[in-house]
């Protein structure tokens, strides 16, 4: 891997994050006054002015932006307006919960999605295939908040076997992980199916068959590795989206992760916290894309580490 390639990727990542921070900084300030959101609706003007001054919101927006960027370069992500805590510490304290939920739902999605996609491809145009495709469409189309509430009604309200909200035990993880993993698993199943169908029709598969390779050998040795490349792309992108996509699920199940903190902070215009979370989301996306690029090269030697196919050299 060329050093210039990594340098270019890093510079691009920094540029992406600067754009995100700048965009969010201005959009948040132009769409709502944090003081109006955080204080009761009947406070007097003196109180509003007090907090605007305290939080530096009485300065011109460009001055605020300059101060924020200077602080950022010094590792200061700002203070939460709501509870005076360091914004970065606050966000990092929620990260493990979101990571746990994301990891478990990802494992769930892969464990169910990949086998279902493979089976659908192998049984193409049969009832099994139609069932899997139907399930995938259903799983992908069902909104998280709806599925979550259905699960709460069934397993908490009626059967009373699972806790409805919180994160105290492994039982608390089941419904949120299922909710988050279902849509993802459905997507994985669809992508696996189409990638497998594509690979199964390739000449090298016929060659392998004519050489006498058995079904399982052809599947594991030839089909799956070749079908893995588009799958890696989608899994990488989804890993980057994990924090963002957990927002609704975390709110429905009162899961104390970053998604819930983001909803709350946006509603309250807790600017430093929102900016910090969005930087972490952007960073996750950038890093997961970088990892995918590297994995490409490892999975497919035809693709060079700088992203250009051997054939094009």
């Amino acid at each position: 891997m060329r050093p210039t390639y990594l340098l270019w990727k890093t510079l691009r990542a920094i540029l992406t994050m600067w754009l995100v921070v700048t965009f969010v900084f201005f959009v948040l300030r132009l769409t709502g006054d944090p003081v109006a959101q955080l204080l009761p609706d009947d406070v007097d003007q003196n109180t509003i002015d007090f907090y605007r001054h305290l939080w530096g919101l009485d300065q011109p927006i460009l001055v605020q932006y300059w101060r924020y960027m200077v602080a950022l370069t010094q590792g200061d992500f700002g203070i939460s307006f709501r509870d005076n805590q360091d914004a970065l510490q606050l966000v990092l304290s929620r990260l493990p919960k979101t990571a746990l939920l994301g990891f478990v739902s990802l494992v769930f999605a892969l464990v169910f999605g990949i086998p279902l996609g493979v089976i659908a491809a192998l049984k193409k145009d049969t009832a099994v295939d139609r069932f899997v495709v139907g399930f995938a469409v259903f799983g992908f189309s069902l909104p998280n908040f709806f599925l979550g509430i259905l699960l709460i009604l069934a397993f908490s309200l009626h059967l009373r076997i699972l806790p409805s909200s919180g994160s105290d035990s492994w039982q608390h993880l089941i419904m949120p992980a299922f909710t988050l993993g279902t849509a993802f698993g459905a997507q994985i199943a669809r992508y696996t199916r189409s990638a497998m169908i594509d690979v199964l029709n390739k000449p090298y598969m016929r060659t392998a068959e004519s050489k006498g390779a058995g079904d399982l050998l052809r599947l594991y040795r030839h089909a799956l590795p070749n079908a893995a490349i588009p799958l890696i792309t989608i899994i990488g992108l989804k890993m980057g989206e994990l924090i963002g996509s957990a927002v609704i699920t975390e709110n429905v199940f009162a899961w104390p992760g970053i998604g819930r903190l983001l909803t709350f902070s946006v509603a309250a215009r807790d600017l430093a916290v929102v900016q910090c979370i969005l930087m972490i989301i952007a960073l996750t996306m950038v890093v997961s894309n970088l990892v995918v690029d590297i994995l490409y090269g490892w999975l497919d030697p035809r693709i060079r580490a700088d992203g250009t196919p051997e054939a094009a050299r």
Binding site: R160, S164, S165, N251, V252
Partner: peptide
């Protein structure tokens, strides 16, 4: 005082005894 922002989750939790 446990934070449960979603009202249906609060209701389910009350009925189920949480």
């Amino acid at each position: 005082f446990r934070a449960v922002p979603e009202v249906s989750a609060r209701i389910a939790g009350l009925v189920s005894g949480e």
